[in-house]
Design a protein around this nucleic acid. Structure first.
Lengths: 220, 220, 220, 220
DNA sequence: TATGAATGAGGCTTCATTCAT
DNA sequence: AATGAATGAAGCCTCATTCAT
């Protein structure tokens, strides 16, 4: 039953990577629980059941952990969007918007967290390369969206405004929908969040369609 | 021309209040300039040209300063909304939504700052009473909106969904519109923010109107 | 007996400056006692009877404290050298060298400490401006020495080698003399350090004089 | 052609010793490159192409590595000095001093490094035995020097001062000459370090000779 | 009343050393 | 024997708040 040396090494690497994932998940849990500014490296380590030093074997800095969470999320969102765009091309016109909304509203707490992380990390020098990578992902998504929207405008499905108006409006609504879920005073008493988010998604799917505005866009 | 004792006292009070306002404004400037987590009490005092100790004569804690900024803003928004609702009652159906959007999008940077302050202060014990006050303002606005929306639903202007769906969707869009203005990668290359915000406002004004969804709401 | 407001302010400033001096002196004591790498900011603060934070009201970083000690010492040495050069010009040919040696050997422990500080701080970014200032002081001393030595060479007092040979040799001997005082194994058993340093100073004063080498310099 | 068991063991020992040497050399390279306080065990291991744990199979602690470098150097210097003293006894009076200077100035960077290591390790408990060994080497050299100098004094070659004055002065000059090579501000602009060191060596060879001081030693 | 020096808890990070594989 | 992941003590620095003047 002896494992070969290669196997042992592979096993070790697996364990190492598993621990990395564990750090990220612990960090994520804590971030969701206590808020971005309350989480410390010491606490992450304690909760993950490891030493502080171990964290730094996996990540160069605390910011790198946060950045990793952001990047993972951004990649996931971009992938979902990509699938949605594909579905549009297969003849399902609302699919992209729907996919985007569902991707972001599937876990609003996480989405909101990532929004906050972005604010925190925006100009932190030690994660600049990763931030650039993130922006690159977005730019790629934008490029795809632009051509998609342009086609839909030329087909008369969407209002003839600059393409980015459409997807930025969409993004705005999704962004805001997430906030709705958490803001005290407005939403805390409403138990039917699910339905609300569906309603908002419906708006997202139809907004910007030609004819919706009934003349209110003449001044654009 | 010596001032009477009463006058002197009044003058002093005026000066004291003026200084308080100055602290708030300086803090606001710095918050907008550097971000919520970068501003220190020392810097506020320095920029306001007063001593750090003086700041604590006016506010019990740093959080109280931030809270005050939030409250001022919330009151202003609520007041604008109130005027909008009045206008609706004077026969201008879209006025409330328009007023609300314009109020929040007039200074997106400030709006965004306040969103962040709310996250930061959400569960800080030392501003709990003021936070309650803020929530009270919101509840009051909500009550007004609820009856307004109910009337518009019964008149067939708006879709027949729970009233809060309408204003929360509206709030979400406004919230998101603000974020659009600042997020890197999505919006940095677009110079026509003005028009974009008008476009989003247009969506806000028409969204939720009956007939917009063309059957997509059957499952609510 | 009431002090005027101005007096009070002045008194406060004095106290503040006195504390700054106290920090430097405490730091110096500790550095001499325990070695450059053993002294911590916490320890300095504790020994000075103040809080850690207070240290950072006076100095931007730990390195700045060390740099200050270096600069103070360098200025003092440069001033002593300047006086020595003046004395040379008043007709006392060995005065400069003697002044230099006496200045540095007056407190060998301090001189040695400063040598070590220089190594530590050499390429630390946060004290680069002050390091430049220190080098400027040295350059100024060098310029004076150069012209002095050139005159003595042309008068036939010193060997005709590049001027900097003379003062660098001098500097080397002083530098080394300091080390002699502290190196275990060589000097620990000798109680007559005073006389030894005088002997070395004598060498310093006469070395490089014309005729000393008796032909051993022909290959230069 | 299978190797005998004894041969295999011998081969293994060879390899083990070679690795030890490699660690020392890698450490030395790094120390010269980055400075005593910047080198970590991890970096040494990485550069040597071995694991960190392996380093600790060869040395009990990081300090032991540094100590070893010192001891190697000290032994080398002592050996050179011994040869110089032999040459003196063969009728070459300046040979000892010359050998000593040449030994130390042959690689000033290394000499300087060792000076710094000595400061660092001076009172470190875990290398105390090795430090004692080093001091023993020095004492042995000193004993030889003492008798040599005494003979030269009695022959009228050297000034009649306590013997250790002579070799300590010599040591001081060598020590300082090394520093001259590296100190910024004094030496950075001079390209003719070679000649300078020869000049200083010349001084070393002649200093302390009878008649040099022309009466300036009367007060000793 | 206004001030700003003083405080110290608490955060991030480094690195020599250990030990299970 | 060789490895390198894990550890945690220890260091530097920040900043909201207090308090003597």
């Amino acid at each position: 039953m002896a494992l070969s040396s290669t196997d042992k090494i592979r096993q070790k690497k697996q364990k190492f990577l598993a621990r990395e994932q564990q750090i990220i998940e612990t960090a994520l849990d804590l971030l969701l629980l206590s808020g971005v500014e309350k989480v410390t490296v010491a606490e992450i380590a304690r909760r993950a059941g490891i030493g502080k030093g171990t964290v730094y074997k996996h990540f160069e800095s605390k910011n790198q952990i946060l950045m990793r969470i952001m990047l993972d999320y951004e990649r996931c969102t971009a992938e979902n969007l990509r699938k949605g765009i594909e579905a549009v091309e297969s003849g399902n016109p609302g699919a992209a918007v729907k996919a985007y909304f569902e991707s972001r509203l599937a876990n609003p707490a996480l989405d909101r967290l990532v929004q906050q992380l972005e604010i925190k990390l925006e100009y932190e020098a030690d994660v600049a390369p990763q931030m650039e990578e993130l922006l690159e992902i977005r730019r790629s998504s934008i490029a795809k969206l632009n051509s998609l929207v342009e086609r839909q405008i030329s087909r008369g499905v969407l209002e003839d405004v600059p393409p980015h108006f459409h997807y930025l409006a969409c993004w705005a609504l999704a962004q805001g929908a997430v906030d709705v879920c958490f803001n005290r005073g407005f939403s805390e008493d409403f138990g039917d969040k699910e339905k609300l988010l569906k309603f908002i998604t419906s708006i997202g799917v139809t907004m910007g369609n030609r004819g919706q505005f009934r003349g209110s866009l003449t001044d654009l």
